[in-house]
Structure formats: structure tokens, C-alpha cells
């Protein structure tokens, strides 16, 4: 069955593995913004292609960022 499964598009690569200079930092909401939806929810890694390790770091960073009001917990706009 698995041979029948077809992949669409190209394989996603973890952005942070591809570019080691990118640092995950809760003080940089600008960068974290691309990993949350418009509503402010964290995007799952199956969508973004981030690897497990970096997704974990991202999650804590986003949550910290929310605590200091640099990122919204939720927003409608």
C-alpha cells in the first residue's frame, strides 16, 4: 500500500536545521510570528516541517513570548 501513497510537492525541511544561524528566542516575536496562525495558535510541525527538537524549542519560546506580552495568546485580527 505504501508504494501507492503519493507525495505531493517537495519534502519540507526544518528551517532551523537548514540555517544554524537562526536562533529561537522568545524576545524576537517577529521571527516566531511565522510559526503561529493569524489567531496566534502554534502551527503543528507536520505543517511547517520543523523537526521535533526545534519545534519543542519553538513552543517554549512562543509561550514565553506570550507571557511578556510580545505575542498574543489569541487574536482575531
Amino acid at each position: 500500500m505504501s508504494e501507492k501513497k503519493r507525495r505531493f510537492g517537495r519534502r519540507k525541511v526544518c528551517r532551523f536545521c537548514a540555517d544554524p544561524t537562526l536562533v529561537i528566542d522568545y524576545k524576537n516575536p517577529q521571527m516566531l510570528k511565522s510559526f503561529v496562525t493569524i489567531r496566534g495558535k502554534i502551527i503543528p510541525r507536520r505543517i511547517t516541517g520543523t523537526c521535533a527538537r526545534h519545534q519543542r524549542e519553538l513552543t517554549t519560546a512562543i509561550k514565553r513570548s506570550r507571557m511578556v506580552a510580545l505575542m498574543p495568546f489569541t487574536s482575531v485580527d
Binding site: 544561524t21 536562533v23 528566542d25 524576545k27 524576537n28 516575536p29 517577529q30 521571527m31 510580545l70
Partner: peptide, 8 residues
């Protein structure tokens, strides 16, 4: 507006 925070 949205100035990147000094971190890098």
C-alpha cells in the same frame, strides 16, 4: 513598529 529585538 515591530522592531526586531536585539538578540543576534
Amino acid at each position: 513598529e515591530e522592531e526586531p529585538v536585539a538578540q543576534e
